[in-house]
C-alpha cells in the first residue's frame, strides 16, 4: 500500500492539496523502514576497537616466537590481515570469524595467502595458532548496540560463534560501526525522495513566459560543438576532454608518522620536526623501492612542506618514523604496506 502510494501518486483518491501534504512523509517513512530492516538483516559479527591491542599482541608475539618480523597488519571490521617476512619471502594470513571454517584457531579462522611462492613455515602456523588460542572466545561483537535479537544470537551460536561479550555499554559500539553511513544514507534518500516528489507538481508562479523558438536546438548544437572542439584540442581552457580522473586506480597511499609503539600520527598535527634526510619531491620512496603506488601528490607535498617549514624540537623530542603507507586493492581485498622514508625527531 505504502509503496504503491509512492509509485502512483496521481491515482490517489485524495484531493491534490491533501495529497502533497502527506505523500512525501509516506515515502520518507518507507525509506526509513527499508534502511532499518536492511541494516538489522545485514548484521554480521565485527571486531571491536577494544580488541585491537590483544590482536596486535598476538601478531607481535607470533613474530617474536618465530623470528619472522611482522611486515604489515590491518584490523578491519570483519577480518585481520597480517604479513610476516623472511627476507624476500612473505607470508600472508587472513583471520576471519570462526563460523567460516571447520577448525578455528581460537576465535579466528586462519587462511594463508593463496599466491605464496612457498607455503608458510610450520613454525609460523603453529605459533600463530597458539597465540590466537590465548585470546579466548570473547573477541567478536554484533554491530548493533548490543540489542541483538535472540534469533540472531541463536543462529550465531549454531555457526560456532561465541556469544556477545558482557562489556560496559560504552565499549559495545565498535569503531567501524555502520551507523553514520546509515544516517547519511537515510538523509540522502529522504532528501532525494522529498525533492523528487516536491518537483512533481510545481505550482504556477508569476513571471513565466514561453521559450523562444529554437532555444533548445541552439543549446544542443552549441553543446555538441563544444564537445567536438574539446575532443579536437584535448585541452585549451575552457575546452577540455575532462580525462583527469579517468585512470583506474588500484592503490592509495599517504605519508604518515609512526611513533615507537607503531601508532599513526597525522603529519600536519605535529608542530616541531627535525628529520635525518627529507627528499624534496613527493614521489617518495621511489617505485623501485616501494613497488607501484598511486598517490595524490598535492597532499604529499602539503605534508612535506609542513615538515620542512616546522621548527626543530628544542627539548623533549621523540623519534618517529616517517613512512608512506600504501594500500593495494586486489579485488575486494586490501593489502597494507609501510614503506620507510626517514626517521625524524618530533615534538607533538
Amino acid at each position: 500500500m505504502l509503496a504503491r502510494q509512492c509509485r502512483e501518486p496521481n491515482r490517489s483518491a485524495m484531493s491534490p492539496p491533501q495529497h502533497r501534504r502527506w505523500q512525501p512523509w509516506l515515502c520518507v517513512s518507507l525509506g526509513v523502514a527499508i534502511l532499518t530492516v536492511g541494516s538489522v538483516a545485514g548484521a554480521a559479527p565485527v571486531l571491536p576497537g577494544s580488541a585491537t591491542k590483544r590482536i596486535e599482541a598476538a601478531l607481535e608475539g607470533t613474530a617474536k616466537q618465530t623470528g619472522l618480523p611482522l611486515s604489515s597488519g590491518k584490523i578491519q571490521r570483519d577480518r585481520v590481515l597480517a604479513r610476516w617476512c623472511d627476507g624476500p619471502a612473505c607470508f600472508d594470513a587472513t583471520l576471519t570469524a570462526p563460523g567460516t571454517c571447520s577448525a578455528p584457531a581460537g576465535p579466528f579462522c586462519v587462511t594463508w595467502g593463496q599466491a605464496l611462492e612457498a607455503p608458510a613455515p610450520q613454525r609460523l602456523v603453529t605459533a600463530l595458532t597458539a597465540q590466537l588460542k590465548t585470546l579466548g572466545g570473547s573477541i567478536w561483537q554484533q554491530p548493533s548496540d548490543g540489542g541483538v535479537s535472540k534469533s540472531l544470537q541463536r543462529a550465531l551460536r549454531q555457526r560456532g560463534a561465541p556469544p556477545p561479550p558482557k562489556q560496559p555499554a560504552a565499549l559495545r559500539l565498535p569503531k567501524t560501526d555502520a551507523a553514520p553511513f546509515q544516517i547519511l544514507l537515510g538523509l540522502g534518500v529522504l532528501g532525494a525522495l522529498a525533492l523528487a516528489i516536491g518537483l512533481r507538481r510545481p505550482p504556477q508562479a508569476p513571471g513565466s513566459g514561453p521559450a523562444p523558438s529554437g532555444v533548445r536546438s541552439f543549446a544542443l548544437a552549441s553543446s555538441v560543438l563544444f564537445g567536438v572542439l574539446s575532443l579536437g584540442v584535448h585541452h585549451a581552457w575552457p575546452l577540455f576532454v575532462m580525462d583527469v580522473y579517468s585512470y583506474a586506480y588500484t592503490s592509495a597511499s599517504q605519508i604518515i608518522a609512526l611513533d615507537p609503539d607503531g601508532r599513526v600520527h597525522n603529519v600536519r598535527t605535529i608542530r616541531q620536526w627535525r628529520c635525518d634526510a627529507l627528499p624534496e619531491h613527493d614521489l617518495i620512496p621511489s617505485h623501485e623501492v616501494c613497488g607501484h603506488y598511486d598517490d595524490i601528490g598535492s597532499r604529499d607535498l602539503f605534508r612535506l612542506a609542513h615538515i620542512r617549514n616546522a621548527p626543530a624540537p628544542s627539548q623533549g623530542a621523540r623519534r618517529f618514523r616517517l613512512v608512506r603507507r600504501v594500500w593495494r586493492f586486489e579485488g575486494t581485498a586490501i593489502e597494507q604496506t609501510d614503506c620507510p622514508i626517514t626517521v625524524c625527531e618530533v615534538r607533538p
Binding site: 569503531k175 583506474a248 588500484t250 592509495a252 599513526v264 597525522n266 598511486d294
Partner: peptide, 26 residues
C-alpha cells in the same frame, strides 16, 4: 570501487575518529 577507495583512503585522516572517519572506515 578501487577508484572510490583510492580517493577515500588518500584523503582521509587516519587518526580521526569522528563520524565521517568512521563512515570512511566502513
Amino acid at each position: 570501487h578501487r577508484v572510490i577507495w583510492h580517493l577515500l583512503q588518500s584523503l582521509t585522516d587516519l587518526t580521526g575518529n569522528g563520524p565521517v572517519d568512521r563512515l570512511v572506515a566502513w
